[in-house]
Amino acid sequence: MHTSLACGKWMPIGCLNHHTQLFVGDRVTVTFFDMQGELVGLSFNYQITSAEQGEPHSWPRFIAEYINTHIPLVEAGKMTEQGLIVAYRSNQIYALEGCGIERAEITFHCIAKCDDIKTDKPAYDYVYPEKSNDYNAGVKVLQPKTGLIYKCKPWPFSQFCKVKEENNPLYEPGVGQSWNLAWQQVSP
């Protein structure tokens, strides 16, 4: 994607060049500030909803594209001889000089905690309802509808963790009418 910056001087106010692996359910908060504090109307959350979106080379591009489409007086990308280009992995955030926006901060809200930081192993076994026939006592699932992690209770309740029919949401973790008979919430 290529865009050119509008007339005026553009100041760098932040960057999207993190090399962080994100997982389904994680979110990135982009917060904009002026001299008075946070600009709540411009700040936003970007939810990771697929493995592709969480890749270190993907999410900075998706967030830059979101900024360019939805945030006035702010652009994101990599400055080249051809103008501003939204790049993979490394993008700068710019604000039009005189608009009052002074900085942008990126914050990560990761629900996929790692046992060993070097391995990037998520804190859940499956994203609900994938491979639901494998659910048994102790299996942890990420429920995309709530963004929370649930652990299958021990027998005899574990029999309700398996999804037998897609049209039977009674025991669906966090949202089904009787979910707490089969599941225990493990993330806040």
Rank of each mutant, 00 (worst) to 15 (best):
G138D: 01
P56H: 11
E75W: 13
K78C: 10
T49K: 14
Y46C: 06
A51D: 14
V139H: 04
N68Q: 09
K121G: 01
N91G: 03
Y171I: 00
N45F: 10
I101K: 04
P154S: 05
R61Q: 13
F62C: 02
W59Q: 09
N180R: 04
G8P: 13
Q21D: 12
V141D: 03
A6F: 07
F44I: 05
Q143E: 12
T146S: 11
C99A: 13
P72S: 12
D115F: 08
R27I: 02
E165I: 01
L84N: 06
E97P: 02
Y171L: 01
T31Q: 12
S187Q: 00
Q177C: 01
G41E: 15
Y126F: 14
V28Q: 07
E130K: 08
T3K: 15
K9C: 06
H57A: 12
P72C: 01
W183Q: 03
A95P: 09
V127Y: 06
V163I: 10
G174L: 01
Q143G: 00
R61S: 11
H2S: 13
D134E: 14
V24P: 12
C7A: 14
Q159C: 04
Y150E: 02
H70I: 04
V163S: 01
H57S: 15
P169D: 08
I106C: 03
E165P: 00
T20H: 12
E65I: 01
I13C: 05
G138H: 06
A95S: 15
R61K: 13
G100V: 00
H70A: 10
S158K: 03
Q185P: 00
A104R: 06
W10Q: 13
E105D: 10
L39Y: 04
D116Y: 08
L148I: 00
Q143R: 10
Q184N: 04
E172N: 14
T31D: 14
L142D: 06
P154V: 07
E105F: 02
S58C: 13
M1I: 05
D115L: 10
G77K: 11
E81I: 07
G41C: 04
I111K: 06
N68P: 07
Q53M: 15
Q82I: 02
K151S: 04
Q82M: 08
D120F: 10
D120K: 11
Y66W: 09
K78N: 09
F23E: 14
Q184K: 07
E65V: 02
N17E: 13
E97Q: 15
L96D: 07
C15L: 05
A6Q: 15
F23P: 06
V24S: 07
G147Y: 07
L170C: 03
G100C: 00
R61N: 09
A95L: 02
W59P: 11
K131N: 13
F23W: 15
F160D: 08
M1R: 11
G138W: 00
K9V: 13
H2E: 15
S132T: 05
S187E: 01
E81R: 09
E102A: 03
C114M: 05
P60F: 08
E105W: 00
S178Q: 13
V74S: 09
I71M: 09
R27T: 04
V175C: 03
E38R: 14
A95V: 05
E105H: 05
F157Y: 14
I67G: 06
V186A: 00
I71H: 10
T80Q: 10
D116I: 05
P188W: 03
I111W: 03
G176R: 07
A64W: 06
I85V: 12
Y135G: 02
